[in-house]
C-alpha cells in the first residue's frame, strides 16, 4: 500500500480500508445490503481496482451510486442503482451466481463461528428463548454460490462464537472436508476471510486462523474478544492503517454524512509513531450496520 498514513480515523473507516485493499481488479463482487461492504468495494474501485465489478444484492450490475443515499435506501433505489450496466433482478443475479459468474461475496454478519458460518436469524435458542433478527436476506446465496466470501463484522466476544446459534448462511458448515458439497453447494466455493476493525482472519483446513492484527491493539486483546481460540498464523502481520488518500475519498465522496462509518465508533489517533484510542470504547448496538 502506498500513501500517507492518516493520523485520525475511526475503527469502521479502518475496517473498510482493510477490505478495499483486498479487492482484486476484474473480479465480480456480489455485495449484500449496503453499508460498509458497499463502501469498501466503491473505495477499492476508486483507488486500487478500477475494473472490479460491484454487483448489488438485488442484481444491479456495476452501478455508480449517486451518493449520499437517502436514509435506509441502500439498495433498489434509483440513487443506489444509478449508471449501472444492467438492472437485473434477484433471480437473474442468483442464476448468474449459480453458473459461477460471481467471484467474491462481501457480507456483514451478527455472529460467526470458527467455520465461517453466519447467523443473521436469531440469537439464543431458536426453538426457545431468542432474539429474532431479519433473516439471511441475500447473504445465504452469496455465501453459498460465490467462489469466495469475505465477511465483515466487529471484534466482539459475542460475535465470535464456537457455534453460531443459527446457520443462516453457510461457511464450512461442520468444518469437515467436503461438507459443503455433501449439502449440495457448488464445488470449490467457501469462506476466504473475516475482517474486523482489529484483525484479519483467513482459514487453515476450514478453521478460522488469525492472520493479522491492527497496530492499535495486541493479539491478546483480539483473542480476549473471541469466545473460541482461532488457529494462529506462523507470522501474524501488523495491518496497515488508513491513508489520508483513502479517508479523503471515504469522507468526502462515499460517506459524507457519516452514515456508513458510524460516527459512534472508537477513534484512533496516530501520534509520534504510536496509536492510541481517543476515547473509551462504546458498546456497539446489535444492529446489522448495513441497515
Amino acid at each position: 500500500m502506498t500513501g500517507t498514513p492518516a493520523t485520525y480515523f475511526n475503527e469502521r473507516e479502518h475496517q473498510i480500508c482493510l477490505v478495499a485493499r483486498m479487492v482484486e481488479d476484474a473480479r465480480t463482487y456480489w455485495v449484500a445490503g449496503g453499508g460498509s461492504p458497499m463502501a469498501a468495494i466503491l473505495l477499492a474501485k476508486k483507488l486500487y481496482a478500477p475494473n472490479a465489478v460491484y454487483v448489488t444484492e438485488d442484481g444491479v450490475v456495476n452501478p455508480e451510486p449517486m451518493l449520499p443515499l437517502d436514509p435506509l435506501m441502500t439498495m433498489v433505489s434509483s440513487r443506489a442503482s444509478y449508471r449501472a450496466l444492467q438492472w437485473g433482478t434477484m433471480n437473474s443475479i442468483g442464476f448468474q451466481a449459480q453458473t459461477g459468474l460471481m467471484d467474491v461475496g462481501l457480507l456483514n454478519t451478527l455472529q460467526v463461528d470458527p467455520y465461517g458460518n453466519i447467523n443473521s436469524t436469531a440469537l439464543g435458542d431458536y426453538n426457545g428463548e431468542h432474539r429474532r433478527f431479519g433473516g439471511p436476506g441475500g447473504a445465504d446465496s452469496i455465501a453459498a454460490m460465490c467462489w469466495r466470501t469475505i465477511l465483515m463484522t466487529d471484534q466482539q466476544k459475542r460475535k465470535f462464537v464456537p457455534r453460531v446459534d443459527f446457520i443462516s448462511s453457510p461457511g464450512w458448515l461442520d468444518g469437515t472436508e467436503g461438507a459443503r458439497e455433501r449439502a449440495g453447494l457448488p464445488r470449490g466455493t467457501g469462506p476466504e476471510s473475516v475482517v474486523t476493525p482489529w484483525a484479519v482472519f483467513d482459514y487453515e483446513d476450514r478453521y478460522l486462523r488469525l492472520a493479522g492484527v491492527s497496530p492499535f491493539v495486541t493479539v491478546e486483546q483480539v483473542l480476549a474478544e473471541m469466545s473460541f481460540e482461532p488457529k494462529m498464523s506462523k507470522e501474524i502481520k501488523t495491518l496497515d492503517t488508513p491513508t489520508e488518500e483513502e479517508l479523503e475519498i471515504l469522507r468526502s465522496e462515499l460517506d459524507q454524512r457519516g452514515q456508513i462509518t458510524d460516527v459512534g465508533k472508537p477513534i484512533i489517533r496516530l501520534d509520534d509513531g504510536s496509536y492510541q484510542f481517543v476515547e473509551e470504547q462504546k458498546e456497539a448496538k446489535e444492529l446489522p450496520s448495513s441497515w
Binding site: G94, D140, P170
Partner: peptide
Amino acid sequence: TNRIMAGAMGLPFIPVRSFGGTDG
C-alpha cells in the same frame, strides 16, 4: 424468488445450488 420462478414456470419444484447445510 427461485420458488416463485418455479411457480411461474408451472413446475412443482426447482433444484438450487444454495441453501443446503443451513439451519434455515
